[in-house]
Write a protein that binds this DNA or RNA. Structure first.
Length: 569
RNA sequence: GUAACCGUAGCGAAGCUGGAUAUCGCAUCAGACUCCGACUCUGAAGGCCGCGGGUUCGAAUCCCGCCGGUUACACCA
């Protein structure tokens, strides 16, 4: 379905051509002065500059051919040369009707691409902490958004499941069954001991090498660690409503490392420097020095960059993705510049496969420093979620008569929305402050406010259905007859453009911004118009069809953001 | 030191391919609704868009310099 700005633009462009001007000046945008108009065109200002003419005269000329269009309620040239546009109820309701009858409410799917999203980054045998939260939330959203746009999205958690950390655990691990809680205490203990006890450290190092060379005893222990740890990680990610297609990790590509390094040497890219094997990645255009990428440490071990390169090689082999999207802390930006450059130079990834890194900022506490527990330790993800759910629970049980069980269930849904919306409504690259009170507030630009709006609409529709068997559909949609209704329609109609834009910019916060606008517009409308008591049946059905569309758009958006709405709250 | 990112009302954010009176929320003040699910709505107040310069008819937006914050700068991930 056509985007509203494109539709208006096509009319404007014809008028520009008729006025003897280039059609490129007919660009239309959402008005930044809603008090004056709904859409605007600034093209006459630029045209006048080039042609040395008076902009307002050009604007007058363009407008004159459109004055009588039934698509506009008004179109006028305004000093110094703006064209201000208001849509007619007919044109607007036509769009809304079309939206309501389409599967994705006007969003068109794109040419299908295969896209790998590398997010999560959990470590085996270590609890998820808030550092993992943003990657999970943003990654899941990007994945869902891409799928909505028609792409094949493959999410890979890319576990930290290899290397010295595993050797440490294996060395200290008892025989027989082990629980996740035990595992989680073993790692910090082993890590601490290795720092003091050189003998222990050496043993752990040996275990690491044994594991990597396929020693049966170490492999057996490793398998047990993986089994216990994966089950726990899956449980926690499920709680976040975050789901991966692939549970690969560093171990997955172990066998590829040696040939990869050999290949880099054979190609003349990798050379020895201070005992390590490195690949130069500096480019003439660099403003700052990009150090060479180390692919093998001086002790012979592979590292982060190596396993990322091997992973790329494997993904090319298996999926040939058109786009790779990595979602990590922005402090890793340099690492990805290096890895991407080596991948290009060595032809592991061909030119036409895009490599993208989204670096996100830190989630801070109110003191502006990385979020900590009250005692100053690293905040576990579980704890953060529980705290949020408790806060929501207190709110919904405060003035309401609701069963404990139902309130618990609702606070899970609402709590998750609070966390995710609080995160995603910020630009990913920026740091933000996690403010429990603010995020869980039911008013303002928050997840709960959005959910509340959805629940309200659900409730109205449910009530109508319980009172009437008369169905309503998109065909019942009539032109607006109040200003708040028009404002709601104007918001709704932006949907396809907003989603396309959010996708191309990989910017979930634009979806949040949009749904907040829709929710606000709906609430104003709701406040002004009595829907269920409307006596004119056709008008009532038109209202219902519009609020149902509003609800559906909001629901699609929150599902993309990664959370759900309860039936009641 | 070098580089990147950030600096927008008391607080939190949006706007950054240049356009009109800089947008939204929280908090504050004043009203409305108290009805379809309470937490909804309307309005007011609040700003040298970090500072200085430049380009332009026009700059929060582009360019240069400075100040402040965060981060990165080879064997961790």
């Amino acid at each position: 379905m056509k985007k509203m700005t494109d539709f208006i633009e096509s009319l404007l462009k014809d008028a520009f051509i008729e006025a003897g001007l280039d059609e490129s000046y007919g660009r239309v945008s959402l008005s930044n002065r809603p008090d004056l108009c709904e859409y605007q065109c600034n093209g006459c200002l630029s045209a006048a500059k080039v042609l040395h003419k008076n902009p307002i005269e050009l604007a007058d000329q363009v407008v004159s051919t459109l004055k009588n269009s039934s698509d506009f309620e008004s179109i006028e040239a305004v000093a110094p040369g703006f064209i201000n546009i208001r849509l007619s109820g007919k044109a607007l309701s036509f769009f809304v009707k079309q939206m309501a009858s389409e599967e994705k409410y006007g969003v068109e799917t794109e040419e299908k691409k295969t896209i790998i999203v590398d997010y999560g980054g959990a470590n085996v045998a270590k609890p998820l902490h808030i550092g993992h939260l943003r990657s999970a939330i943003i990654g899941e959203c990007i994945k869902r958004l891409g799928a909505y746009m028609g792409h094949t999205m493959i999410g890979d958690v890319h576990l930290g499941d290899w290397g010295l950390q595993m050797g440490l655990i294996i060395e200290m691990m008892p025989d027989g069954p082990v629980s996740i809680d035990e595992l989680e205490t073993i790692y910090p203990a082993a890590s601490a001991r290795a720092k003091e006890d050189a003998d222990f450290a050496e043993k752990a190092h040996q275990k690491t090498l044994l594991l990597q060379s396929g020693d049966p005893e170490c492999t057996e222990k490793w398998n047990r660690i993986m089994e216990v740890s994966l089950a726990d990680l899956k449980k926690n990610y499920n709680r976040l409503d975050v789901h991966f297609d692939l549970w690969n990790g560093e171990s997955t590509v172990n066998a590829l490392i040696a040939p990869l390094i050999q290949n880099l040497i054979d190609k003349g890219l990798a050379y020895e420097s201070d005992g390590a094997l490195v690949v130069d990645v500096a480019e003439a255009a660099d403003k700052k020095e990009i150090p060479p990428c180390i692919v093998r440490k001086s002790d012979g071990a592979a590292l982060y960059a190596t396993s990322d390169l091997a992973t790329l090689e494997q993904r090319e082999e298996l999926y040939k993705p058109d786009i790779y999207i990595y979602i990590t802390d922005k402090r890793q930006a340099m690492h990805f510049v290096q890895v991407f450059r080596v991948a290009r130079k060595s032809d592991i990834v061909p030119e036409d496969h895009r490599l993208v890194h989204i670096g996100f900022g830190t989630m801070n506490g109110k003191d502006g420093k990385p979020y900590k527990t009250r005692s100053g330790g690293v905040m576990r993800l579980e704890e953060l979620i529980s705290d949020t759910e408790d806060a929501v629970f207190r709110k919904i049980t405060e003035n309401r008569d609701i069963s404990e069980e139902e309130a618990r269930k609702t606070s899970e849904t609402v709590g998750l929305a609070a966390i995710k919306y609080g995160d995603l409504s910020n630009q990913a690259s920026k740091d933000y402050v996690f403010d429990l009170d603010r995020f869980t507030a039911f008013e303002g630009n928050t997840g709960p406010y959005i959910l509340y709006t959805i629940v309200r609409i659900k409730s109205i529709i449910k009530r109508y259905r319980s009172e009437s068997t008369d169905m309503f559909t998109a065909d019942d949609i009539l032109p607006y007859n109040s200003l708040s209704e028009k404002k709601l329609e104007l918001e709704l109609v932006r949907y396809n453009e907003v989603m396309e834009n959010a996708w191309h910019e990989l910017a979930p916060h634009k979806i949040c911004q949009y749904i907040y606008g829709v929710a606000e517009a709906f609430n104003s409308f709701y406040h002004e118009v009595k829907i269920l008591t409307e006596e004119d049946v056709s008008l009532k059905k038109s209202y219902l069809a519009k609020i149902e569309l509003t609800m559906n758009v909001l629901l699609d958006c929150i599902h993309i953001l990664g959370f759900d709405a309860p039936e009641k709250m």
